[in-house]
Design a protein around this nucleic acid. Sequence first.
DNA 1: CCTCTTTACCTTGCATAGCAAGATACCATG
DNA 2: CATGGTATCTTGCTATGCAAGGTAAAGAGG
Lengths: 113, 113
Amino acid sequence: MSVRSQLLKGILDGCVLAIIEKEEVYGYELSQKLQQYGLRDISEGTIYPVLLRLQKSNWIIGTMRPSESGPNRKYYSLTAEGKENLELIRKEWELLSVPITTILGGNKSERNR
Amino acid sequence: MSVRSQLLKGILDGCVLAIIEKEEVYGYELSQKLQQYGLRDISEGTIYPVLLRLQKSNWIIGTMRPSESGPNRKYYSLTAEGKENLELIRKEWELLSVPITTILGGNKSERNR
DNA sequence: CCTCTTTACCTTGCATAGCAAGATACCATG
DNA sequence: CATGGTATCTTGCTATGCAAGGTAAAGAGG
C-alpha cells in the first residue's frame, strides 16, 4: 500500500463532508471535485464506501434524482449531526497537522543558516 | 476507532523518522518526545510496532546499549534509505496537507463577511 | 530479602479504511 | 447494435493504530 493511501486515512471523511457542506453533490461528481482541489486518484472504490459509511452514521443523507442525460444520481447533503462532526474533524485536523508539520519540517530554519 | 486514530495513520512513520533524524532515540523516549510536540497519547503498543516495521524495511537500525539506571535501551538511527524515504514522506505530506487544509477551512473567509 | 515503582522492551488480536478490480445499468452517438 | 461516457455499488486484500497483556532490570522502602 502506498504512503499516500495511508496519509489519506481518516481525513478523507472530513474532506467529503466539507465539500458536501458547500453544496449538494453526487458521488461521481465528488471524485472530480476532489481532483480539482488537488487530491488526485481518489477512485470510486474509495468514494462510494465513504458515502455509504457516512450515511449509515447519519452524517449525510442521499436522495436519488433523475439526470437529464444519463443514469440517476444520488445527491448528498449534510445532517445536523454531520455538521457537528465536521466541526470536530476540523479541530482534530488543526490539532494534528500543526505539530506534524512542525516535526516534519522542523529543520527548515536550520537548513537556511 | 477514534477520528484521531485514523488521522494519524500513515503519517506517524514520518514523524518517527523525522525525530530519529535529529538524534538517536530509543522507543520509550520517543513516545515522550511525540507528546512534547503535541501528539499526545501515542502508546507503546503503537510505537514499538512502528519501530519494528521501519527496521524491517531497513529504514532505521537499532542497537542495544546499557542504561546507567534501568533496563537496556535500543537506540535507533536512520539509514540512507530511511533518509530518502523521509524526504518522500515530507513531499507527500506537503502535497496532501495543503489541499486538505484548503478544503476543510475553505469557508473561513466567507464566515468573516 | 521482599515488594513496589519506574523504566524499558515486545506481542497478540481487533477494527477500520483506502483501493484495485469487477459488476450492473442508463443514455447518446454512430 | 456496438461503443463510450456517466453513474452506482460490492468483494477481498492489506496496512496500521492501539488496547491489553507479558517480561524484565534497577532502585527505594520497609
